[in-house]
Amino acid sequence: MVQALERSLTFDEFLESYPDDENLYELMNGAVVPVKPTGPHGRVSAFVLRKLIVEVEKEDLPFFIPQTCYVKPQSDKAGYLPDLVVLDERTIDEDPRWQKESTISKGTSAQLVIEITSSNWRDDYERKLPDYEEMGIAEYWIIDYLALGASRHIGSPKQPLITVYQLLDGEYQFMQFRGTEPVRSQVFPNLSLSVDDILAALQPRPK
């Protein structure tokens, strides 16, 4: 699919031509891009997912976390597949794309979107960030556990961090958390999670 489709696609065309090959893809500026998470990337995602599920159940929050969810920004040439999306049970049925496409197109459908950086870190910081802001998604995290982002995004010297963007008057304001600093989230105010927790989860357990 990636080699055969050289012309720029709309999001609807992207969904219609999506291959049945068990691989994952995103649409970036009309181009189909394969998503190939590494093993450590998958472990980070699984660890954070477990933490969030515990909070949802403990606090009895009206949220759920789908296995797969596309986010379609206002551009008709893009469709993103975040690492984690926390959807709102109270508003999701108002999203016209959810029932048939497992896709959200309204900012009110999601409480939180999380991207975990990899070699395509520029997409997380420079492409998806403004699109999620424009959609009105209330909270967006970038988990940069390998400190891959440019210094203009994560500071210098580079070190692993979580950047939390929260919508205020239509614009994202951000906070950055390193080391043992607990993430401060409006969506999960009682969550206990730090960068060191994530890094520790990547260490092999003693036999």
Rank of each mutant, 00 (worst) to 15 (best):
E22C: 13
N23H: 10
N23Y: 09
Y25D: 13
L27D: 05
M28W: 07
M28V: 15
M28G: 04
G30V: 05
G30A: 03
G30M: 05
A31L: 06
V32Q: 01
V33W: 10
V33E: 14
P34K: 11
K36R: 13
K36T: 10
K36V: 07
P37Y: 12
P37L: 12
T38V: 11
T38Y: 00
G39I: 14
G39F: 13
H41P: 04
H41Q: 09
H41A: 13
G42S: 10
G42L: 12
R43N: 09
R43T: 09
V44A: 10
S45M: 12
A46L: 11
A46Q: 13
V48N: 03
V48A: 01
V48R: 04
V48T: 08
L49Q: 09
L49V: 15
L49H: 14
K51L: 10
K51Y: 00
K51C: 08
I53H: 00
V54T: 13
V54E: 11
E55K: 07
E55I: 15
E55L: 09
V56N: 05
V56K: 02
E57H: 13
E57Q: 14
K58I: 06
E59W: 04
D60Q: 14
L61V: 03
F64Y: 14
F64N: 08
I65K: 02
I65R: 00
P66H: 06
T68G: 08
C69G: 02
C69A: 12
C69Q: 01
Y70S: 10
V71M: 02
V71A: 00
K72Y: 06
P73H: 03
P73C: 09
P73E: 05
S75M: 06
S75D: 05
D76R: 11
K77M: 13
K77F: 10
G79M: 15
L81K: 01
D83A: 14
V85R: 01
V85I: 08
V86S: 06
V86T: 05
V86G: 05
L87H: 05
L87M: 12
D88G: 07
D88H: 05
E89Y: 09
R90Y: 06
R90H: 07
